[in-house]
């Protein structure tokens, strides 16, 4: 009897709108093209564009995959947005000898300190590659190239057909991005033992389902205020006090209602809630507001 081979499990960390779901599907399709077994499925709450999203893949050479549950102990973690490492525990459950593939503008030496464990780290500046080749900072296909380089889970060529089918006329830019990422990905071995995470992540103090009142009544009005939506943003508004006439049009047009006045009468956005939509900068009469990229 043939020896049972291993099922490789992948967890993608992305944000809504970055295309993590698409890339996981493309990976599964490419693996199936090679005659392997594969599955891909996402997991997210009611959150929308910009909110953190998890996507899972399972790939195996010969064993059919029976499991239909989310991946708890991944072999590979792919991180599409560099900001996510500060708000969620991306390496949770990552196996020893596992691989981390991350999109970041930083070099390997600078980002290394963020992770401790005996893992392999692959670093790629996917955002700039995607901007160059596709024209938009949507990094999903670029990260596929980096993933293939770091793990050889599939052949790079197997992605050609699924890419063409998915993107049609835009397949070339995406496949270029994929190939460039394959070339430019840097890989490093991390040393050290897996420690308990030292960072603590902010959590909300919402009641659990056992504590809820009958009829799902929520007695505390507006308790969504505890929920941080500020980490969805990639750009944040900055006010130029020289140009600001304190008219308050930014305050009126903010969909979050997160813009308020400080004691000098100037307006500012509460970074805890601001999602970085850019409406205030667009609607400002005097162009006093600029959207500045976050890091």
């Amino acid at each position: 009897m043939e020896k049972r081979d291993k099922i490789i499990e992948i967890r993608w960390h992305g944000r809504g709108g970055q295309g993590a779901v698409t890339s996981a599907e493309l990976l599964a399709l490419a693996a199936i093209e090679e005659g392997k077994f594969a599955q891909a499925f996402p997991s997210f709450g009611p959150e929308r564009r910009g909110a953190p999203v998890l996507v899972f893949n399972r790939v195996s050479d010969k064993t059919p995959i029976r499991a239909r549950v989310s991946v708890i102990n991944p072999d590979i973690v792919v991180i599409l947005d560099p900001g996510l490492i500060y708000i969620t525990d991306v390496t949770a459950g990552l196996k020893e000898g596992g691989v981390i593939v991350i999109n970041t503008t930083k070099a390997v030496v600078d980002i290394k300190s963020e992770f401790n464990g005996s893992w392999k780290l692959a670093v790629v500046n996917a955002t700039s590659i995607a901007r160059d080749t596709i024209g938009v900072p949507i990094v999903n296909t670029t990260m596929l190239g980096a993933l293939v380089k770091a793990t050889d889970i599939i052949e790079l060529e197997s992605l050609a057909e699924p890419l063409k089918e998915r993107f049609g006329a835009r397949a070339k830019g995406n496949s270029d991005a994929c190939h460039r990422a394959y070339k430019e990905t840097e890989i490093a071995e991390l040393s050290g033992v897996v420690k308990k995470p030292t960072k603590t992540f902010e959590t909300e103090t919402f009641p659990s389902w056992q504590e809820l009142l009958p009829g799902s009544v929520i007695p505390e009005a507006g308790n969504a205020k505890q929920y941080r939506t500020g980490d969805w943003k990639s750009e944040s508004p900055i006010w130029d006090h020289q140009k600001c006439i304190k008219c308050g049009i930014c305050y009126l047009f903010c969909p979050e209602g997160c813009i308020g006045q400080n004691k000098d009468g100037y307006f500012e956005a509460n970074p805890y809630y601001c999602k970085g939509c850019g409406i205030c900068a667009r609607e400002c009469w005097t162009e006093a507001i600029k959207m500045v990229e976050e890091e």
Partner: peptide, 26 residues
């Protein structure tokens, strides 16, 4: 000091609290 232009014309009280999960720019 919310007494200038827009804030003078509308109430500053919010009855729809931030922290809702709408898309950005909704």
């Amino acid at each position: 000091s919310l007494a200038i232009y827009v804030p003078r014309l509308v109430t500053i009280k919010e009855y729809f609290a931030p922290g809702h999960r709408a898309c950005m720019g909704c």
